[in-house]
């Protein structure tokens, strides 16, 4: 897993490369927590290169969503691979998160 942050306008775009599973979700959780602790309210999670996500990873997405909602911020997901989108669909998470097809869309909403 490799994660890069980029500030674009009001959002911080977090680009996830690789997979989030039980072995590294805490690392992912820490990185996201640092961004939010830094005062950022609006996040875009770029899932273009996210190959796999386990339920532990979904939990981190969920925690992030709850924290940002509570702070009046936004969490937008974008450019998901079909296999990831399927997981979100099956688990019903597609109804919880705002998922966009492109980064531009995610940034403009």
């Amino acid at each position: 897993m490799d994660i890069k942050n980029e500030k674009v306008g009001d959002f911080v775009v977090v680009r996830i490369d690789g997979r989030i599973d039980t072995t590294n979700y805490t690392e992912f959780e820490k990185i996201i927590a640092e961004v939010i602790d830094g005062g950022e309210k609006n996040l875009v999670l770029d899932c273009k290169n996210l190959n796999y996500i386990s339920s532990s990873g979904l939990r981190v997405f969920l925690i992030t969503q709850k924290r940002l909602m509570g702070a009046g911020g936004k969490l937008h997901l974008c450019t998901m691979q079909p296999s990831i989108k399927e997981i979100f669909d099956i688990s019903g998470f597609s109804t919880i998160f705002k998922i966009y097809d492109s980064e531009a869309e995610a940034l403009s909403n």
Binding site: S91, F93, S94
Partner: peptide, 8 residues
């Protein structure tokens, strides 16, 4: 139905 997991 695409309902969310329990506990959320």
């Amino acid at each position: 139905t695409k309902d969310i997991p329990i506990g959320l």
